[in-house]
Design a protein around this nucleic acid. Structure first.
Length: 259
DNA sequence: ATGTCCGCGCGACGCGGA
């Protein structure tokens, strides 16, 4: 069994105590992190290693930043940045192989305000990422693409859909781009496990959103066909969102059977 | 429109980003 988690930490420096507590209490084998908000040299490698994890990361000053942690062996890096997106200066993707599973960790652009240049950047990024997802599927290997997609896939995934129709996370262009990836043959793991449940992974810091359960589902696990067959469980570590000095996202995890 | 948290540059608050 392999347990893999994704967690948008919203600043790894400020989040370090919460991150370490979560790693200790839930013990994922692999953890994909987003929004490090730290330059490459400020990644807290010693604390992560003391917690039992090897790590690779793609940092950036102030914003973005992604990392892959593993306690089942060194992550073997495959890509840093989405392939064929070399002009992208933002640290939003890192990909590794761990125990014969390809793990892609992404932080998709937010895209607000929409319309505008940030929304254009989001759609362009999704287009290039979609091509990479297709290339990955062609390898026919166990692969997953996880992280903060900044896309609300359906009306079921937001507490009040009508309030989000103009938002870059829920606009038709974003949702269509996301569904185009699924149509290639990727499986939305949490939705597959819980077809009808309300599942949220993010609650903003405003207006007591968490207390009111005014959430969004924007952190996703997409599985290639060989991994879909191995999916046994998944969930959201919602309790973490209630901790002191916490992120606005909660960690999400899945479990995969050994082949 | 509101609201809150993060990192930054500056010089202990204001700003961009989310």
């Amino acid at each position: 069994m392999m347990k893999i988690a994704t967690y948008n930490v919203n600043g790894i420096t400020a989040r370090l105590p919460v991150l370490l507590r979560w790693l200790e209490e839930t013990a994922p084998d692999v953890a994909c992190l987003q929004e490090l908000k730290a330059p490459q040299e400020k990644f807290p490698l010693e604390a992560i290693e003391n917690a039992g994890y090897k790590a690779i990361w793609h940092g950036q000053k102030s914003w973005n930043g992604v990392a892959i942690l593993s306690r089942i062996g060194e992550p073997t890096e495959r890509h840093r940045g989405v392939p064929d997106n070399d002009e992208d200066e933002q640290s939003r993707y890192i990909e590794a192989e761990i125990n014969d599973v390809i793990v892609g960790c992404l932080y998709l652009p937010n895209g607000n305000p929409a319309p505008g240049p940030k929304f254009d950047y989001k759609l362009r990024w999704m287009d290039i990422f979609t091509r990479h997802a297709a290339a990955l599927l062609k390898e026919e290997k166990p692969a997953l693409l996880t992280g903060d997609y900044n896309v609300i896939p359906t009306e079921k995934d937001v507490y009040k859909p009508e309030r989000w129709v103009e938002d870059a996370l829920f606009r038709p262009e974003s949702r269509e781009a996301f569904h185009k990836i699924l149509e290639q043959g990727w499986t939305d793991a949490l939705r597959k496990l819980n077809p009808d449940d309300t599942i949220y992974t993010y609650w903003d810091y405003f207006r007591n959103a968490f207390g009111r359960n005014a959430g969004l589902r924007i952190d996703h696990f997409l599985l290639s066909p060989p991994l879909k067959k191995r999916l046994t469980a998944g969930g959201v570590d919602k309790q973490v969102r209630g901790w002191e000095k916490t992120s606005d996202h909660a960690p999400v995890w899945i479990e995969l059977a050994d082949k």
